[in-house]
């Protein structure tokens, strides 16, 4: 497994992280070591084994479609400074 600075830069970009040069220098060998260790999973024979996405069997739990209480608009907006005219305000799109 070849984990280069380029790989890390690419993954960081997808994850919306901007890494400093110092961070890249530090992370590359660390992530390389960790991922190499995790690769030993390939030793295990998993032919015909289904993946488990939960530790216990989970049945799809749907509630009845009845209107419930939810946050009021002003409450939902109370935790941010970025708002305008009753909406969240985000960075520019274009």
């Amino acid at each position: 497994m070849d984990i280069s600075t380029k790989t890390i830069e690419h993954v960081a970009e997808i994850a919306r992280l901007r890494l400093t040069e110092k961070e890249k220098e530090k992370f590359v060998p660390q992530l390389k070591e960790a991922l190499e260790f995790f690769s030993k999973l390939s030793e295990v024979n998993t032919d015909n084994v289904k993946p488990s996405f939960h530790p216990v069997e989970i049945k799809n739990a749907m509630r009845d479609d009845i209107e419930g209480k939810c946050l009021a608009q002003d409450e939902a907006l109370s935790l941010t400074e970025h708002k305008k005219d009753g909406y969240f305000k985000g960075p520019r799109v274009i």
Binding site: V11, A12, A15, E23, V49, P51
Partner: peptide
């Protein structure tokens, strides 16, 4: 940051089967 990078990597197309799905199978 490290964990976000490892986790994003493990789910990326081309690596997902070898890392994330493989781990979920060994979990079984």
């Amino acid at each position: 940051k490290r964990r976000i990078i490892i986790g994003t990597f493990a789910r990326m197309s081309g690596f997902r089967d070898a890392y994330y799905i493989k781990a979920a199978k060994v979990r079984t």
